[in-house]
Design a protein around this nucleic acid. Sequence first.
DNA 1: ATAGAAATGAGAATCTTAAGCATCAGGCGG
DNA 2: CCGCCTGATGCTTAAGATTCTCATTTCTAT
Lengths: 141, 141
Amino acid sequence: METQNLKKAGLKVTLPRMKILQILEESETRHLTAEAIYRELLDSGEEIGLATVYRVLTQFEAAGLVSRLHFEGNQAVFELDRGGHHDHIICNQCGRVEEFLDETIEQRQRQIAKEHGYRIKDHALVLYGDCLDEDCPRRGN
Amino acid sequence: METQNLKKAGLKVTLPRMKILQILEESETRHLTAEAIYRELLDSGEEIGLATVYRVLTQFEAAGLVSRLHFEGNQAVFELDRGGHHDHIICNQCGRVEEFLDETIEQRQRQIAKEHGYRIKDHALVLYGDCLDEDCPRRGN
DNA sequence: ATAGAAATGAGAATCTTAAGCATCAGGCGG
DNA sequence: CCGCCTGATGCTTAAGATTCTCATTTCTAT
Ligand SMILES: [Mn+2]
Ligand SMILES: [Mn+2]
Ligand SMILES: [Zn+2]
Ligand SMILES: [Zn+2]
């Protein structure tokens, strides 16, 4: 449960932290903005301030519990860190997010970094396109 | 010269536009924030407002003259569009930016998008690491 | 239960970028 | 080459996202 993850991360167990962690765990899309989390808290009747949401998310990030992603658009997106690294595909129309991991790409990245004289630490790869989901507003195109 | 590129892009030839285009063309790093461009203008004695810099850059982007990049950090980065697509490696320490294009990665991206049922339109790939340049503040590590 | 330390909430502050509006200046007809 | 007209600029103010400040509340360890 949330309590354990928080303690494990060396964070004091508080109601806001529990609720936020819970929302991240139970989210359908798994990729949420601070605002979206804040709204969910309000909807579920919790009186938690937006500043706290941002603060807690930043702490979670520092503790390695969540990752902060920068897709196009102005707001950062947060997702629970479930262990493995992955990259993202996003639908320009409906915002659907898919995750993938391609070992060929990962490998090429390391190679390229080496060739350019960099000790690679991290990377961000995001593919943008139109999905073909039936619920997508501009399906087919 | 700048005049031609502006006319070609259907933009009226004005002093701010010429200067900004010139700065982008002559920049050593080739990847500049709006602020950086603004400072260069000030340094060269031009009385051009920051709002104009942002406005012009947005127009340049719409005209396909420049690309707006979103690296980590809060400010957008602009670079002259010199034709070919490429991705970036950035040094976490000194901010040095290198460009690369890897056909294997490009291909895998298209393939992945297809497999996930997306019609890919664009992508952003940025590698972050420490460079081994002698001028890099944390060389070697 | 109590005290001390850490966390929260509300609002102000910051940072980046985008308006709004009065003034100015390229581009074209004369 | 001159003057108009429309679009461009500058300055100021606004907007959106995130962080900071500080008084108050809540954990956690006695
Ligand atoms: Mn993800
Ligand atoms: Mn570039
Ligand atoms: Zn879609
Ligand atoms: Zn470096």
